[in-house]
C-alpha cells in the first residue's frame, strides 16, 4: 500500500489522529516529493556553481605557479594585488591605478549599457505588448533571431560596420559629410554599442512579460482622469511593469560587468574590462591567485549592486503604498 492511499483511510476513522496532524503529514509528503524532483538540478548547481567557486576561493589564497597553476602555500598576495601593486625595484606598495581604471570602466560601461538597453528596450516591449495577440509571437520571434548566430560572428559584424573603412564611415565619406573617418572601433563607445546590441533582448523579454500582464484599460482610465501621456507613463505604466524593468536591468547589468568577447573584439587590447583582466591573469599573466581574487571581487560587486538595487526598489514600492 502506498503512502497516498493511506491518507483517506485515516480520515475515514475520525477517532484516530487529529485532522491537523493528518494535514501536516500530507504536507510533509508533499515536501519530500518536491525535494526529490529538484534533486537533479540541485546536484548540477552544487557541482557546477559552488564547486568551482570553492576552488576559486582556495586558489585566491595560494601562490602563483611559475608556468601558471598554483603552488600550495598560503599567501594573500592575490587579494593584495587586486587594488595594490608592488614596485618591482623597491618592493613598495602603491594603489593599482590600472586595475582601478578597469574596474571603473567596467562599472561605467555596464551602467551605460543597462541604461541604453532600457531606453531602447522599453518602447520595443511596449510596441510588442500592444500588438494583436496573434502577431505578438512573430515579433518575439524576431527579437530572438540574433541568438541564432554565434556571438563572436555578430561582434565581428559590428566591427565591420563601425571600423574606419567600415559601412558607416564609408557612407559618410562617400556623401562628403566627413573627410577623416570617425574613430569608433576600439573605443568605450564601441564596447557599449556591442554590449547593448548583444544584451538588448534580455531587457526586452522580461519587460514584455510584465507588460503583457498589464491591463491597458488602465491607460484609458488615466487619460480619463486628466493624466497626460507622460504622467500616465510615470504614474501608471512604470509602477506596474517595474518588476520587468528590474529583472531586465539585472539580466543586462550582470553579464555586461563580466563581458569578455565584446570588449576583447571591439575594445582592442587597451580598453580592457574586468572579464579581460581576469582572463589575462589565467593566460599570459600566469597569476591564477590574482585572477581568482579578481573574479571573487567581481562577484562581490554584483552582489552589492543587486542588494542595493533590490532594496531601493522595495523601499520605493512600500513608499507608494
Amino acid at each position: 500500500m502506498s503512502a497516498g492511499s493511506q491518507i483517506p483511510a485515516d480520515s475515514a476513522a475520525p477517532a484516530g489522529k487529529a485532522p491537523g496532524m493528518q494535514a501536516e503529514a500530507a504536507r510533509r509528503a508533499d515536501v519530500r516529493r518536491n525535494i526529490l524532483l529538484t534533486t537533479p538540478a540541485l546536484i548540477v548547481l552544487f557541482f557546477a556553481a559552488s564547486g568551482p567557486l570553492l576552488i576559486m576561493l582556495v586558489y585566491s589564497f595560494l601562490r602563483p605557479g611559475d608556468y601558471g597553476g598554483v603552488q600550495w602555500t598560503f599567501a594573500t598576495d592575490g587579494w593584495a594585488s587586486v587594488f595594490l601593486q608592488r614596485d618591482i625595484f623597491d618592493d613598495t606598495l602603491s594603489v593599482a591605478d590600472a586595475h582601478l581604471s578597469i574596474f571603473w570602466r567596467s562599472v561605467k560601461l555596464s551602467i551605460l549599457t543597462t541604461f541604453t538597453a532600457l531606453v531602447l528596450g522599453f518602447p520595443t516591449a511596449y510596441f510588442i505588448a500592444t500588438r494583436p495577440v496573434e502577431s505578438r509571437n512573430l515579433w518575439l520571434f524576431l527579437i530572438t533571431i540574433p541568438f541564432w548566430t554565434n556571438l563572436l560572428i555578430r561582434t565581428f559584424a559590428i566591427m565591420e560596420v563601425i571600423r574606419n573603412q567600415g559601412l558607416i564611415n564609408n557612407i559618410l565619406t562617400g556623401l562628403g559629410l566627413i573627410d577623416e573617418p570617425i574613430q569608433m572601433l576600439f573605443t568605450d563607445f564601441a564596447i557599449m554599442l556591442g554590449m547593448t546590441y548583444v544584451y538588448l533582448p534580455l531587457m526586452v523579454l522580461p519587460i514584455y512579460a510584465s507588460m503583457e500582464k498589464f491591463d491597458f484599460r488602465l491607460v484609458e482610465a488615466g487619460y480619463d482622469l486628466y493624466a497626460t501621456r507622460l504622467r500616465v507613463l510615470r504614474r501608471i505604466i512604470l509602477p506596474l511593469v517595474k518588476p520587468g524593468v528590474v529583472a531586465g536591468s539585472i539580466l543586462v547589468f550582470i553579464p555586461s560587468l563580466g563581458a569578455y568577447v565584446t570588449p576583447r573584439v571591439l575594445g582592442g587590447g587597451k580598453n580592457m574590462m574586468l572579464g579581460n583582466l581576469i582572463s589575462l591573469q589565467f593566460g599570459q599573466g600566469r597569476n591564477w591567485p590574482l585572477g581568482a581574487a579578481l573574479s571573487l571581487t567581481l562577484l562581490l560587486i554584483v552582489m552589492v549592486a543587486l542588494l542595493y538595487y533590490v532594496r531601493s526598489v522595495g523601499k520605493a514600492e512600500s513608499h507608494h503604498g
Partner: peptide, 27 residues
C-alpha cells in the same frame, strides 16, 4: 480625454492596482 471635464466609470472598473482606495480617488 484628459482635456475634457468628463469622467468614466469603466465596465472593468479599471482601478489602479498599485494605489490604495484613497489613492485611486485622489488621482
Amino acid at each position: 480625454p484628459y482635456s475634457r471635464p468628463v469622467n468614466t466609470v469603466f465596465q472593468s472598473y479599471a482601478l489602479f492596482p498599485h494605489m490604495t482606495v484613497a489613492g485611486n480617488i485622489a488621482f
